[in-house]
Structure formats: structure tokens, C-alpha cells
Computed example of a mutant assay.
Amino acid sequence: MKWALSGAMIDAGQLIELAKVAEDAGYHSVAMPDSVFYPEHVSADYPYTSDGKRMWRPEVPMPDPFIAIAAMSSVTRRLRFSTNVLKLPLRDPLLTAKQIATMAVMSVNRVAIGVGLSWIPEEFTFTRTDMRTRGARTDEAVEIIKAVCAGRGPEWVEYHGRHYDFDRLMISPAPDTPVPIYVGGHTEPGLKRAARLGDGWISVNTTVTQLTDAIRRLTELRADYGRSDVPFEIDVAPTDVSGVDGYRELERAGVTICRVVPWRLYGAEPTLPARIDAVRRFADEVIAKF
């Protein structure tokens, strides 16, 4: 199993040092969340809490994931990076593909992209995008990014879909290795999208029981789509595991990447020295035993 350090809700000024420490300590990657802004008033419930309320304050930092990844990749050599998850239907897919292709080339193929739909109606209203078509547009956007970042360097691509349509064009630079795209979502449509289009699936923060149920369904769906033999990452963030035995149980269930927040596991203060100590402690107590 590979280990990803979560970069969620961290001061932007701490990320560079945490990335360097994570690389030295043996982590596989850093996973960066995506939140464009916080609407003061939200007309929908948050889907991942029992009371529908967000579990963070409006001022909690959420640096732009692409800028943060670019900065961290410039001070590391082995560490990989992913988004967890990029709200893809808020963005133009060609502009997004351009950014991803450039990051992949400049990081020497150390970038993977996790994508999701977004649940906040105001994000779509304020960015002048359509929430109603977010699923279909995400499907097309994934196909466009895969075409641009197919791993054959710059080449002519075209796309003619219902929501996005363009003739032959070339984006350069483009990577010489395909950029993996992991698809988020615990709903049936989300799991189907991951099984059909994704190079992997990426979870929200949730329990082992919910993770194993989702993995079981993904296995069924991948077989239905004839993709059982295609390499597929299972990237999860368990909320009720802390010891080695619990992580081994996840590995047996099919998990390939585990996202962790060591400072929360150990009750550390949100200072850079405390977080660095927690990153190293988790590496010594858990990662080293794998």
C-alpha cells in the first residue's frame, strides 16, 4: 500500500516544508483538495455529515491545488501529487488540460488528477456553469483530459461531444506518460463513472465499512464494463483506522493508496513543527512496517 499525506486545510506557507519532510519520510504522495470559494449562504446540505453542515470555517485555507502542486513538485524529486478532488465541471476542460499537461511535464510525470462534481449550487451559479449537466460534462471533460495527456507527447486531438466540441488542436507541452485520472463519488453514478472512465477511485473521509462496501461495488461494476484486468487504484481516507492491523485490513480489501492526516491522529497542534513531528512519527510507526 502507498501512503498519501493529506494537504487539506493547511496554511499555504506550511506545504513546501511538509512536502520535503514527507518525501524524506517515505510517503508516496501529497493529496491536495479543491475549493474555489466559500459561499456565505449555501442552499444545499453538505452530503458527508449527519446534520448537513460543513465541518470547516469559511476562512480555513484551501490553496489552489495546481499552484500548490507546482510549488511542491519544484522542491521534491520522488514525491507524487494528486487532487482530492478537483471540481472539474466548474472549469473549462481545455484550459484544465493545459494546466495538467504542463504540471505533468515539469514534475516529470509525478501528477495524478482526482476529479469530482461539487455539491454546492452557488459554485455553479457564481462561475456561470450548469449544475444540472455536471455529470455529463464531467464525463466529457475526463475524455478530453485523457486525450491531451495520453502520454504520447504533443499531438493533434479533437473532440465532438454534446457539451464540448472542438476541431483538431495541439497542446504543448504534453507528457510522455499518461496522467492518471481518479474519479470520486460514493453514489451509484459516481461509482459507475469511476469504473467506466477512471484509472482509479478516490473516496471521501469515511469508515472502513463504507469503504469496503464501495470497493465491492466497484469490483462488480468494473467487471460489467469489461475492465477487471485494467490497472486501477483505490485511494481512500479511512476515519476509523489508526493501527497497523487496521491498515492491513484495508490493503486486503483492495486499497492501494491510503490518505492520512497524522497530526489529527496524534492530536498535534496546527503548527508547522508539530505537523512535521506527526508526519515523521506516522512514518516510523506505520509506514516503516509496510
Score class of each variant (00 low, 15 high):
1 M>C: 08
2 K>T: 07
3 W>R: 01
4 A>M: 06
14 Q>L: 00
18 L>T: 00
22 A>T: 02
23 E>Y: 08
26 G>V: 10
28 H>W: 06
31 A>I: 05
40 E>Q: 14
42 V>Y: 08
44 A>R: 10
46 Y>N: 01
49 T>M: 01
50 S>E: 15
52 G>K: 01
54 R>C: 12
60 V>E: 08
66 F>K: 05
68 A>Y: 00
71 A>Y: 00
77 R>D: 14
80 R>S: 00
92 D>S: 12
93 P>L: 01
93 P>D: 05
98 K>D: 07
99 Q>N: 12
100 I>E: 01
106 M>N: 13
106 M>T: 12
110 R>M: 02
116 G>H: 04
116 G>P: 03
125 T>A: 13
127 T>Y: 15
139 D>G: 08
142 V>H: 03
144 I>Y: 01
146 K>F: 04
146 K>V: 13
150 A>V: 12
160 H>D: 15
165 D>W: 10
171 I>Q: 12
178 P>M: 14
185 G>F: 04
191 L>V: 06
194 A>F: 00
199 D>S: 02
200 G>Q: 05
201 W>L: 07
202 I>L: 05
203 S>I: 00
204 V>C: 09
204 V>L: 09
209 T>Q: 11
209 T>S: 08
212 T>W: 03
212 T>F: 06
214 A>L: 01
215 I>N: 01
218 L>G: 13
225 Y>Q: 10
230 V>T: 13
233 E>M: 09
233 E>W: 07
235 D>I: 09
236 V>T: 06
238 P>F: 04
240 D>L: 05
240 D>P: 00
243 G>Q: 09
247 Y>R: 06
249 E>P: 11
250 L>Q: 03
251 E>W: 12
253 A>R: 15
260 V>K: 01
264 R>W: 10
266 Y>K: 07
267 G>S: 08
272 L>E: 00
273 P>F: 01
279 V>Y: 00
281 R>M: 03
282 F>D: 04
285 E>C: 11
286 V>I: 12
287 I>S: 13
289 K>E: 11
